[in-house]
Design a protein around this nucleic acid. Structure first.
Length: 547
DNA sequence: GCGATCAGCT
DNA sequence: CACAGCTGATCGC
């Protein structure tokens, strides 16, 4: 369940994915996707009442999310207060303090999150800096690098904080087979089964949540059929899904549900009650989509596993794996703090006081490059993200692509949409520097507004069985990384790139590479921090389109 | 009766 | 192996 409290330190007057408690006072609401654990308080009577008295408070989400939301009668009262936004199109929103009339402008951009239908990430740009709230997401390596809105020209935007779905942000979940691979495995199993006779049917044991639809559409397409589901209502305005689902039970692929579906299966019935046509018993297999992951060094395993005489488990994940998360977050990487602290810091920090670092902070992601099996052939079949793999290894670090002082497109680009010209509280930014203060100046207090923070928040889905460092929010503090423990120092050598844009920060791991030595990293970081040139690829310098 | 919370289950 | 979300018990209002 998501444990994100709903607010970001930079913009505490807006609430995301939480609608209870303090969030009742928000000036604008954002819903990343339509999963219940991100809708806490959304049907609360207090909130409903507040809306009726407000002229300015609105809920912003994608069109699809609005549709799914309003499909549930309990949320129907949101109809007139919900503003759907197009993907990837920056929209200015006024945050109004209705008591004082005070107004603040903020620009929000919705980015596809790949978690479930309608799911988005929110990029906010305003006078308190740029922040990215990912919500839950499943993005493959390379996806984020293709998102124009995260870039200014050829550079990654200066993003102050990333509020990140950390569900699988643990090395244990190093790799989760890609959607394509999982789909292929499932389709093969289904194909082999349903081709045997019309009485051979498949039951997809899916949970009551949005997110399996792409499975239905792809299988529907592959087998020229429709998938039986309980209801079509929510999809009535989504033809691209609607055409692949049906309430007609006479099909071979089912994803219908019933509270007692396991019992039904025992009795050789499908959850919809179907049992036999013209007296011939059905031959039913069940496939349960569930997350399967592979460690850094784990050999590949089949994405479909037989768990019983007629039951299977198939790999399926709504969330990005550790490596996918790492690649996404890398450019923004710096600080980890607990969510509790983050919340505290919504209030002014105590001057001169060191923010408290989570005691269980881990050097996340340190062993990346070391990964992979040794026989070089599995890269390709394992869908390793479009074979960028081999283009990377001999290239120099591209860390500076994101963080060199020269890079500065931001002041021209994103600023133009912001309400304030330049941050006054952040001198280095005021001058246009995007250098993350890897070695923060001593005199600076760990101010909220300064430096980067990677807030692993939004969810502690996996906290139950994992070590505490995974519990919801972790922020990696910039002041930690000069220590020799390697904290955060993992990132830069993966910034290798030979790809088309300098901002292609999503690079698959390189089989031959070794984990960097701490000493080397320190050396490199010191150079970077002192703005020495480390490796520079001229051709990728800012292009004129920035302007 | 309703909401919030939690254990249990899947 | 998780997740998302239900059901049902309990408690407070």
């Amino acid at each position: 369940m998501s444990s994100f409290a709903g607010r970001m330190k930079e913009y505490p007057t807006i609430s995301l994915d939480r609608f209870d408690r303090e969030n009742l006072h928000a000036q604008a609401y954002f819903l990343s996707h339509c999963h219940k654990d991100h809708m806490k308080g959304l049907k609360g009577p207090l909130l409903k009442r507040k809306l009726q008295f407000s002229r300015t408070v609105r809920l912003y989400c994608s069109f699809v999310t609005k549709e799914l939301l309003l499909n549930n009668p309990k949320y129907a009262f949101w109809e007139e207060y919900t503003v759907p936004l197009e993907l990837e199109s920056p929209t200015q929103i006024s945050l109004v303090d209705e008591a004082s009339g005070e107004k603040q402008e903020i620009v929000v951009t919705l980015l596809p999150a790949g978690h479930c239908p309608g799911s988005v990430m929110f990029l906010f740009e305003g006078c308190h800096g740029n922040v990215l709230y990912t919500g839950d997401f499943r993005l493959a390596v390379g996806d984020a690098s293709r998102m124009e809105q995260l870039h200014s020209g050829s550079r990654v935007k200066d993003i102050q904080s990333v509020y990140l779905d950390s569900t699988f942000y643990d090395p244990r979940f190093y790799q989760i087979p890609s959607r394509e691979v999982c789909l292929r495995g499932i389709a093969e199993l289904i194909g082999n089964w349903i081709s045997q006779s019309r009485y051979h049917v498949v039951w997809l044991n899916c949970k009551a949540a949005y997110g399996y639809e792409y499975l239905f559409t792809n299988l529907g397409e592959e087998f020229s059929t429709q998938v039986h589901v309980n209801s079509l209502n929510m999809f009535k305005k989504m033809p691209e899904i609607l055409s692949y689902v049906t309430t007609d039970r006479r099909c071979q692929i089912h994803a219908c549900r019933h509270p007692k579906d396991e019992e039904f299966l025992q009795g050789n019935r499908l959850p919809c009650g179907s049992t036999a046509a013209d007296g011939t018993p059905l031959r039913i297999i069940s496939i349960k989509p569930s997350t399967m992951w592979f460690g850094e060094r784990t050999k590949k395993t089949n994405v479909v596993i037989k768990t019983g005489a007629s039951s299977y488990r198939a790999c399926f994940s709504f969330h990005s794996s550790y490596s996918e998360v790492s690649f996404l977050s890398k450019p923004f990487f710096l600080l980890l703090v607990t969510l509790e602290e983050l919340t505290e810091r919504v209030a002014p920090p105590v001057a001169g006081e060191e923010p408290q670092v989570a005691s269980d902070m881990q050097p996340v992601g340190l062993n990346f490059m070391d990964c992979t099996e040794s026989n070089g052939e599995e890269e390709d079949d394992n869908e390793e993200e479009e074979g960028q793999g081999d283009t990377v290894k001999n290239k120099g670090p591209k860390w500076e692509d994101f963080f060199t002082p020269e890079v500065l497109s931001d002041s021209q680009n994103s600023q133009s949409q912001s309400c304030c010209s330049v941050r006054s509280t952040s001198p280095s930014r005021a001058t246009g520097s995007q250098t993350p203060e890897l070695f923060s100046e001593e005199e600076e207090t760990p101010d909220n507004n300064k430096g980067f923070s990677l807030s692993l928040s939004a969810s502690n889905h996996s906290s139950q069985n994992l070590d505490s460092h995974l519990d919801d929010t972790l922020i990696l503090h910039q002041d930690q990384n000069q220590t020799s423990d390697g904290v955060t120092l993992q990132s830069e050598q993966e910034q290798l790139s030979a790809s088309q844009t300098s901002s292609d920060f999503d690079i698959p791991s390189t089989p031959e590479s070794k984990a960097p030595q701490t000493a080397d990293l320190l050396h490199l970081y010191r150079k970077l921090a002192s703005r020495e040139e480390v490796v520079l690829r001229e051709e990728d310098e800012c292009s004129s389109e920035d302007l």
